[in-house]
Design a protein around this nucleic acid. Structure first.
Lengths: 206, 206, 206, 206
DNA sequence: CATGAATGAGTATTCATTCAT
DNA sequence: TATGAATGAATACTCATTCAT
């Protein structure tokens, strides 16, 4: 018997499905009730299983929440890559990046909400934030790279890539909150304005 | 009839000072340890008083956190108004608004962090968010008003004021997180880029 | 949907036994230490379990205490019914009622004490008493019905049934307190006197 | 300075008045909100003074509640004595006793309610009840004495005086609860029935 | 694999009491 | 005398985690 270590060995289909189901319910719980109220009991209830099952598939709540973040990041990254990989022109890549990001928010608002809450609240046992949007933040670094690539290709004007990357990420991230709470928020208009603005910001002035 | 608990009647100097001290410690605790770990015990510990004192000055944790938000909003609004009230030209008002906002972030990053966390986490007993950045969000409405005023004065081009207001707010709000966690973040550069971008976004194309 | 906390679904034997055990310990604690000192910690201590167990089987202290009242009322009512259902003559029914009541007090003094304390102290969150011996008090209404039935059958004289019911209940209820605290109190003598008095009070004067 | 010992020396008029006022407010608070909610803060609030004042005039809450009981007992005893001292015939004394008791309940329901709650809840630091209606209960002993006096004078029949005293006290005490909570309760009818019953219970059968 | 009973640390809150002013 | 600020213990309740079945 090897029950001590939880689901080890090669991941079976059932195992993977259970994990995915629990991750989905955790996202739903956090998005709907907030970080503080998303207890393991609440997550288990939404999954229709007992608390023990959650503990069985994830060694701790910390690990569960970490997996939520990695899961969402992975799916978001894939969706964005699928959109930008087909483009070569720096401007088109950038437009694709913004559009793919906002489209992902539109299609997965709960995922974004959950990740945001986890990033703000999850801490190490010592109290330090586990997910810090630091200088090494891969999401930001990626966008910054796109901007620099455009500059190096001579397509973009001279601006501070780090600052503009932060600015654009902020404009993207804020949209997720709006989508959930602001009934007057129109994502297509917002996307159009942001794309236009990014165009103005990067375009070489004639 | 006197108030049941806590300091009633005319606020004395001591009373006001204690409340301010506790508010400051609550902000510090939330900014440093996150919403979930900012217990009344932690706040009291930072203030160097017993838990009872916090309960004595604030009838509940809910009230304490609400006061934190009102306090920070009040101070931020005053700082921004002091900067924008001296300007008349729409472009100058807008630039002043952005600069005053970012300056406030620079000078009070913990306040912003605390307010953001409270807004995301504080709930009514029924589970609904207490501070929702809804369509009626006064902060956003104010900025939207500045943009519309510039359009009506003929100084700004034709854009979606609601969308641009959200975009600029997002660009401002994201800076607070960066300030705390990103060592490479240079606020003056960021301010310059954001001001430039807002200029490009609102300027009538020649 | 499963219940959020505590044992849901079909009550198993273990589950029922634990609940019964905790109810018994709650009764014991209230009867011995009084309502004010009967904390969940004290009840758990007497049950030999941790505080969490009590919260696991009863969603709140309010529910636990309510169950205590319903439990005791149920058992007392059953005991009394078992004694009175075999009688048909109004006088014999009434005598049986009094005797069964006092016998229950004799056998379960702690239950009565606990119920009395809960009835006097348990309040709704708004401050109103949860168990009020109002005009609609089923215990009293039952006795009043027995008295009226005897009058309508022509066995009893003309008296105020409501007033006499209250009087007899008062005489019964006071005995429980005496049983616990008065070493000179002899229940069999008391029963004899009360039965005699009820006889005198209801008998048609010749 | 002798502030350590509270109000010592000869009781001035002011002191006596303050104590009486606080006692009255304590009674009011307990009667209206119940024992558990009658905090010193609540009592002080009703008296329009600060908590410190209550602590100044009564060394502890325990002492305050004890004084409430003694105060009410004293006033009730005086009212009953005033009524029974004018009678000499045992039957008339007994009738006067019952009537004076019920009249006091009618005129001072809050006092009775408060005393009842205190008697049930107030404990010594060791957990033992402070006011126990024991065999030596002076109130009961007094009534028992009246009954025995009637028997020794040959006016009353042969009954168990202790048991009947308990029974009558129970019938009296239950009326206070009814007065407060039962809108259908008619005290004059109840008094008539109880007096009649006591007559039947003590009368020598012809 | 799955359950759910049990634990124990942690939460906000209330309150009698003390004490400097 | 009187105030009210401060304390610290006690309360009910929540929840991540463990474990026998």
């Amino acid at each position: 018997m090897r029950s001590k270590a939880g689901p080890g060995g090669a991941p079976t289909f059932t195992k993977t499905a259970r994990r995915a189901q629990i991750l989905a319910c955790a996202i739903e719980a956090i998005a709907e009730t907030g970080y503080g109220r998303a207890s393991l009991a609440e997550i288990a209830r939404r999954a229709g299983v007992s608390k023990g099952v959650v503990s069985y598939y994830f060694t701790s709540k910390d690990e569960l929440l970490t997996q939520v973040v990695l899961d969402v990041y992975g799916r978001a990254g894939a969706a964005i890559a699928a959109r930008t990989d087909t483009e070569t022109d720096p401007s088109a890549v950038l437009t694709g990046y913004v559009e793919a990001n906002l489209a992902f928010l539109d299609e997965h608002p709960a995922d974004i909400r959950a990740v945001t809450e986890i990033a703000m609240n999850l801490r190490t046992p010592e109290g330090a934030p586990r997910f810090t949007p630091s200088g090494a933040d891969p999401v930001l670094t990626h966008l910054e790279g796109l901007l620099r690539a455009g500059q190096e290709a001579g397509s973009f004007r001279d601006f501070d890539a780090h600052a503009l990357a932060i600015l654009v990420r902020g404009a993207i991230d804020t949209a997720s909150g709006r989508l959930v709470t602001d009934p007057d928020f129109d994502l297509s208009t917002y996307t159009r304005e942001l794309v236009a603005l990014v165009g103005l910001a990067t375009r070489r002035t004639p």
